[in-house]
Design a binder for these strands. Structure first.
Lengths: 284, 284
DNA sequence: CATGAACTATCGCCTTGATCGATGGTTATT
DNA sequence: AATAACCATCGATCAAGGCGATAGTTCATG
């Protein structure tokens, strides 16, 4: 079986174009490299180098084997990389729960930076709203969450406001009766169906003052609004990105409202280095 | 450095859920597996298994490392696979030159079968016509070629006709004057510009009897025909697939012509097992 | 609760393979 | 012709993988 040392010797020899140079690079003696390549050639039953000239050059078969060997070395270096990260306490998998309330610009920037920093770390993104997000973090199912700001959180959660503001406004389909009105008061609004977020934890605290339909995500609400089923409070960026011009913003007193996003994590299941790093990126 | 044996022991132990079972599977003693896992844990500075219960179970970190370890083993088995193929004389890289004359159905079927049979073999496809194809095979640059049948080939080439027939017909743009005529004789045809294949080897044997534009591939000819620059003989399937209904077939005596495709290879640089296998698939 | 079956950890010993330094042969440069 | 750099080979050394035996755990069962 081709061992790591042998493969490394082969790859270095191939890329350096010289056994001696490879030996110097790897800090081994020249005879070691020579023996390694020879043993590899025997094991694979192939001639890897053409030794007729001064400097050994790869045979065509050698070129192909070089690729395969480099794949192995790359895989082992990935293994060592993630091992050292795990040994330093980095979580094996990072779970982030976000609201689709959340404006994606900063988050995407943070994610791409994260991808550079922890290329091999598994990342799980959950989508949920309000109480569901709190529950996910509390239970330890998610390490970090980004949620629409609430007045208070359970005592075991820590929150910090993200420096970024979006807006939530009221929208209806362009075909909806309300779309024609220049300005709308509360009573008029109440005469039409509201599309509202429902959480899974807290299915529906029925303080309904009118007909209400609910869905567990803003994206579903948007689709229901597009269907003309009622008016809905929606994040502006979401409508801009997925609304495709089919929605109309309503002019109602008190709207649009500014939106503040909190980062949440748990004192009991504190995020590891990767989670903390992501948090600091998001909060800077 | 994590050796293959150790990794294999780890992966087997993880998938079997038991060190002893892994030992049986790998034909090693139980102590070997135990020692291997222990040494791996020391090397990586990680606890991979939770030994508190009867059967050892992977820790979260162990799950991640299992993935990485399997990547390495997969890479080494690929290395061994291609090594054994190369050792049996399979060419390190197969170069096939085809004419875009060639109907793709059978060729695509052959390619996908090829992909099953030689998953790790590098494949290069060159596109050329007539004399260029012959030159590619003669020089050894391509191992196999599929070309429009010619009367004779250089003595060092072997040819065999592919059992498949396509048709070449004359086409013009729908806006072209010829498109309006129900039937056309040779003289009328000669009064308009011909779009003809030019090879690179044999740039243009100027027996032109009229205004002629030429291009090195049928696809370019098709585009020129779509531009309305003249009439062109084109393979039917090519027009059906890339013509997008913009071309009109001409009714001329002697057209459409049946098209025969020859497989070509060289006696001097005979194709290896992979090339021969592809040939037999194509000729069956 | 006692027993037995199956499992893991550890110890001593052996074999394999990676490594080194020394030596000699080959190739290209001066 | 001399030199410098390169590769192959040999014998010795040492670490790591392997085995078998043994002892300690864990779990199911009567």
């Amino acid at each position: 079986m081709a061992s790591q040392e042998v493969l490394q010797a082969f790859v270095q020899a191939a890329t350096q174009g010289s056994f001696s140079a490879a030996a110097r690079k790897l800090g081994r003696s020249q005879s070691t490299i020579s023996a390694a390549v020879a043993s590899l050639e025997i094991d694979l039953d192939l001639i890897l180098f053409d030794r007729s000239s001064r400097k050994p050059t790869l045979t065509p078969a050698g070129h192909v084997m070089l690729q395969r060997a480099e794949e192995i070395l790359a895989a082992t270096s990935r293994l060592e990389m993630t091992a050292s990260q795990l040994a330093q306490g980095v979580e094996p998998k990072l779970t982030v729960a976000i609201s689709d309330t959340y404006q994606s610009d900063r988050f995407e920037a943070a994610l791409s930076a994260f991808e550079q920093r922890y290329p091999d770390l598994e990342l799980e993104c959950l989508i949920a709203e309000c109480d569901d997000l709190v529950a996910l973090v509390q239970s330890g199912r998610a390490h970090v969450a980004f949620a629409e700001q609430q007045d208070s959180y359970p005592p075991d959660l820590v929150s910090s406001t993200v420096q970024e503001r979006t807006e939530i406004a009221l929208f209806v389909s362009r075909e909806h009766p309300l779309a024609a009105l220049a300005s709308i008061d509360q009573d008029t609004l109440q005469q039409h169906r509201e599309l509202r977020l429902a959480t899974i934890v807290n299915p529906y605290e029925s303080r309904a003052k009118g007909r209400v339909w609910s869905a567990p995500s803003y994206l579903m609400l948007l689709e229901m609004a597009q269907g003309g089923f009622g008016w809905a409070p929606l994040p502006r960026w979401l409508v801009g990105r997925f609304g495709a011009g089919t929605l109309q913003e309503l002019n109602v007193r008190g709207w649009p409202k500014p939106l503040f996003v909190d980062a949440l994590w748990s004192r009991l299941h504190p995020p590891g280095p990767a989670g903390s790093w992501l948090l600091s990126k998001m909060l800077e």
